[in-house]
Design a protein around this nucleic acid. Structure first.
Lengths: 338, 338
DNA sequence: CTGAAAGCGCTTACAG
DNA sequence: CTGAAAGCGCTTACAG
């Protein structure tokens, strides 16, 4: 049998209430008593039983982390690294994270993660684009949640977002400063708030540097509603590169798309960056293994994960807080492709 | 307040014991009573409180899933897909999975996942190569665990492994049957049981088809102890391809290594598969996006995850079972690179 | 076939 | 500053 709070109390010659107080750092306990109890706890390597504590406090001690299965299974590891950041942050607490995917054709009636059906979590982090019916369900059920890298028009939720606008702007500015004049944009999921912001950063930089006087640059824009992918990159590049005059740079809505762009450029016999520069967004691991190595905008997935956890905890502990959005800064990374 | 077992009992006009019995499908309950209770449970959407049940049964209802951080953060997603398979399998049960990474320089004194320190799991799945001190710790503490795609010489543990030998053998046989005569092998972590088996399959196929009469083929072998990677592929390819006569095929210990091999071959101006065929192992997602698309040996990560869960459950529920190893079959996938 | 009761290991007002 | 007691929502022998 494992050691319980009773054993500790007995050895210390106090009641279990007192032990509980020092365990939870509540109320006043005589310093000497506290020290003694702490000593015994240490000595016996006592660990409070999670389930007993949970039962008494009416908390689950769990946090859910939900990703679309398509996002998780993608080659890129954006959301799994955010998970890692969150998992790392959680280590200092007494929370555990339950990672689940949710399928593309999600129906809250039947497809809710079990921990949501059974009330086994105190809150949920939603990574990236997720089914709106899920968000709605959480909202209605008053289950604390934070959106990561996503949002919905019309209502503001607790969320962690990247500074997409400034990241894109900085990338374009660097491109311009290195002499590029005809800069294209290729992107998927054009309705996605993050993509919109990246596009806005692109547009605004062009304006600010007078590179789109009469909408000349508009022919270098390729935007699709479907999920970002290599394929979109390839298709977009094919079209954009056939414009006259040919663009001398392409900014992609993310790295995966950029991979498609690069491979199309190369298969057309053009050189990167000599003929066309390419810049991505996200800095996923394989970006620096491309040839040439991809310039991109780095976002610290670990930071996002940590911040998501911190915000979620605040919401859980204080349910009436008004919704807030926290923006994580990003950084342009110059590599070989630009 | 959520509905409790008491509410159900009251509404059904029975005691909570009876409700509990039908909940757990234990003992005999009059069919009619059972039906009635079930009806009310359904109607009120009653869900037993996990923590209360855990406290009463002395179980945690959690399973740990541990990966080296280096494995998880790698570009390949082998172990995260196995996790997904396991997570999927778990949905039908009342278990949750806690995913954690463990750092490279692992010290059980300080780096144990919190759920292990606090006894918050009933068992653990170890994915791939993990610190031996961790395995030893679990063994000593009698914590049920299963190794996935790994093993240690000298002692047999509960484990799920792939049929590495036959997978490699089949790959080589196909290569030979398509006319290849000088087949190389490139691999890292040469001490890893899975790699050893793949190597053994390679060797045995060569023998069986008389392609290594006087050890001619040995010069086409490149084996390293360091972690498998693109780099090892590049380095190995460089060396092997400089042999005379040049090999006409290279079998790689995994896909990641194969990527390095392919890029080296191409940078030398050789064609795949015309000059040199390349075959990998694992069939990770990006393998079919290479150009040319990589032939490889497919292993169903989902199946592995599921089987790991099943085995782990058996061990948890029946701690005295002798250790067993379950082998999951694999399948050669012909694509463009061979 | 079913109920009363004890117990799982904690936390938390409430006294004092 | 500390203890006695109730309570969290289940399960499980034990009676009957």
């Amino acid at each position: 049998m494992a050691v319980t709070i009773k054993d500790i109390a007995q050895m210390a010659g106090v009641s279990i209430s007192t032990v509980s107080l020092v365990l939870n750092q509540k109320g006043y306990v005589a310093p000497e008593t506290r020290r003694k109890i702490l000593g015994i706890i240490e000595e016996l390597n006592y660990k409070p039983l999670h389930s007993a504590r949970q039962l008494a406090t009416r908390k689950t001690g769990n946090i859910g982390y939900i990703v679309w299965d398509s996002h998780f299974s993608e080659v890129e590891q954006f959301y799994s690294h955010i998970f890692l950041g969150m998992e790392y942050a959680v280590r200092g607490s007494d929370y555990y994270i339950l990672l689940t995917t949710v399928k593309s054709q999600f129906d809250p009636k039947t497809d809710l993660p079990r921990y949501l059906k059974n009330n086994d979590v105190d809150g949920v982090a939603l990574a990236g684009r997720v089914p709106h019916s899920l968000i709605q369900h959480l909202d209605e059920q008053m289950i604390p949640f934070v959106l990561i890298d996503y949002g919905l028009s019309g209502k503001s939720y607790n969320s962690i977002i990247l500074d997409n606008f400034n990241g894109a702007y900085a990338a374009i500015r660097t491109l311009i400063q290195s002499g590029r004049k005809r800069i294209g944009f290729i992107g998927g999921t054009s309705f996605h708030p993050s993509i919109k912001e990246r596009f806005r950063g692109y547009k605004e930089a062009l304006e600010d540097f007078d590179l789109n006087s009469n909408g000349d640059a508009d022919k270098y824009i390729y935007l699709e509603k479907t999920e970002t992918s290599r394929l979109i990159g390839e298709n977009g590049a094919e079209i954009i590169l056939s414009q006259q005059p040919r663009p001398d740079a392409i900014f992609c809505c993310n790295d995966t798309t950029a991979f498609g762009v690069m491979s199309k450029i190369q298969s057309l016999g053009l050189r990167i960056p000599d003929d066309v520069a390419v810049v991505g967004f996200d800095d996923i691991p394989q970006s620096e293994f491309q040839s040439p190595r991809l310039s991109t905008v780095r976002v610290s997935k670990f930071t996002i994960g940590r911040e998501a956890y911190i915000l979620l905890r605040e919401i859980i502990d204080n349910p009436n807080l008004p919704a807030q959005t926290r923006t994580i800064s990003v950084e342009f990374v110059q590599r070989e492709s630009s």
